[in-house]
């Protein structure tokens, strides 16, 4: 089994109010078959055995679909591998002797709860503002009652692939949540079920986004470059279109 040794500089912070700082750890004999999170597990095992506080980090499915994990690894959200979450990043992409700086996703709207754990509920509140369909459908209709052309369904699915990890916000030089909100608005605006509330949704979700203290998009494209689901900034353009038409032509 191939192993590597790493120096880790990890952000440690007791709680939202405490000032944080970087701690340096040396971790030896890391199997290159490990995922990044398993490497952190190994570190935490060692820390626990030494009687120290383990590093807090969020994780759940560990297969890139839940959106819980995420950290900045040497300045890149979810690490240097593109189109993967942190849990899908494997240690074979690093060399023995590397120093990794691991920081939490940072944004005014994402307060650090502890170490690498952040509060992303700002994204939930954007969804709560309109990222749903509220028509009374009665009993479940037959699956093919509403015909949707395959390319449209694909396009909507590209947007719906968003797992809400917050990497777009974390990597945006302005801390903007436009890719997230754009993907959510796009997904429903493309589908027939989303049409009745299309305009209200665009207005409400953008207003909710602004209220959370995110920055403004300056079209630097960093978000889609780090997005583990490769969501295109074309969805931001669609959101701009939706918001414009809702503002000027909405009821």
């Amino acid at each position: 089994m191939q192993t590597i040794d790493l120096t880790l500089q990890i952000w440690r912070q007791k709680n939202s109010d405490a000032p944080g700082d970087f701690e340096t750890y040396t971790l030896k004999n890391i199997s290159t078959a490990m995922s990044f999170l398993e490497m952190l597990d190994l570190l935490n095992e060692n820390l626990t055995l030494q009687g120290q506080e383990p590093v807090a980090f969020d994780h759940d499915c560990r297969e890139g679909i839940c959106g819980m994990c995420g950290a900045m690894v040497n300045g890149i959200a979810h690490g240097p591998q593109s189109e993967t979450t942190l849990c899908q990043l494997h240690m074979r992409h690093f060399n023995s002797g590397d120093t990794l700086v691991i920081e939490p996703f940072r944004s005014r709207a994402f307060p650090v709860k502890r170490d690498l754990v952040i509060d992303r509920s700002a994204l939930d509140r954007i969804i709560q503002a309109g990222g749903y369909i509220s028509i009374n459908t009665g009993g479940a209709p037959e699956a093919n009652t509403i015909a949707i052309p395959s390319p449209t369904a694909e396009l909507a699915m590209d947007a719906a692939a968003c797992i809400g990890c917050g990497a777009c916000v974390a990597s945006c030089p302005n801390g903007a949540a436009m890719l997230f909100t754009g993907a959510r608005i796009s997904q429903l605006s493309l589908l027939p079920q989303g049409q009745p509330e299309r305009k209200e949704r665009a207005l409400a979700m953008v207003m909710a986004m602004d209220k959370e203290g995110f920055g403004n998009c300056s079209n630097e494209r960093e978000c889609e470059a780090v997005c583990p689901k490769a969501i295109s900034i074309r969805h931001i353009a669609r959101m701009n279109r939706e918001y414009l038409s809702a503002s000027f032509l909405g009821e």
């Binding site: 940072r106 005014r108 990597s171 920055g215 494209r221 295109s232 900034i233 074309r234």
Partner: peptide
């Protein structure tokens, strides 16, 4: 104003900040 607002959106800067975008996916 946008420049000022955007700077405020990340009060704690990263120790390391790397730009990875070259062109859009499209």
């Amino acid at each position: 104003f946008l420049f000022y607002q955007n700077r405020k959106a990340r009060p704690n800067p990263y120790r390391i900040s790397v730009r990875v975008a070259t062109h859009s996916l499209a």
